[in-house]
């Protein structure tokens, strides 16, 4: 894959698009075990608040390392969390994918995510700017960092029983 990415930007875009769509499908189907496998152990999953980028030293909606990611998924799955039993259903699209850089085995890209949730007979709509740092491995792409910045991240939100 590494060789191909150097040679053919269009093929790279097709590859990362396929990856992002598979991930989006996993999240809508709540196939969280598969989703965890997309990550590098040192990966960080962050939903920031506002425009600051010093995520470690600011308050975020979530700042998940491997342990917190696994705890979060465990909480979704075990059935003791009333907000996730059942969780809201979601349908999302990921598009407007832009590859910012592809050097060696490191790819940085951005994308748009639109998500609609449904619970209690009401629907809510969310939009997020996604930023990914992907590593090319022998086992396909792995996520090193994913930042999902909600359009109104510093505004009035609702509680989420799913992932972006």
């Amino acid at each position: 894959m590494t060789e191909m990415t150097k040679l053919d930007p269009k093929a790279l875009l097709a590859d990362v698009t396929e990856f992002l769509w598979l991930e989006a499908d996993m999240l809508d189907r709540k196939a969280y075990g598969d989703w965890l496998d997309l990550w590098l152990t040192e990966g960080l999953y962050i939903l920031p608040i506002g425009d600051g980028e010093d995520y470690e030293n600011q308050l975020n909606l979530c700042y998940d390392d491997d342990k917190m990611r696994r705890n979060r998924i465990d909480r979704f799955n075990r059935g003791f969390s009333i907000s996730s039993a059942p969780a809201a259903d979601t349908v999302r699209t990921v598009s407007r994918i832009v590859i910012d850089s592809a050097e060696g085995d490191l790819i940085k890209l951005r994308a748009a995510e639109h998500l609609i949730e449904d619970k209690f007979g009401r629907q809510r709509i969310w939009a997020a700017d996604l930023q990914y740092t992907l590593r090319v491995t022998g086992d396909g792409f792995k996520i090193e960092r994913k930042i999902a910045k909600l359009l109104n991240s510093d505004g009035m939100l609702n509680s989420f029983s799913y992932l972006f």
Binding site: Q58, L59, Y63, R75, S81, S83, F160, S161
Partner: peptide
């Protein structure tokens, strides 16, 4: 302060492990 922030994120807010269940 970083530790306080991570503890806050753990329980509170739209994606905390506590607040969404309160809201529900």
């Amino acid at each position: 302060n970083r530790t306080r922030l991570r503890l806050h994120e753990h329980f509170q807010g739209p994606m905390g492990f506590g607040s969404p269940d309160d809201a529900e």
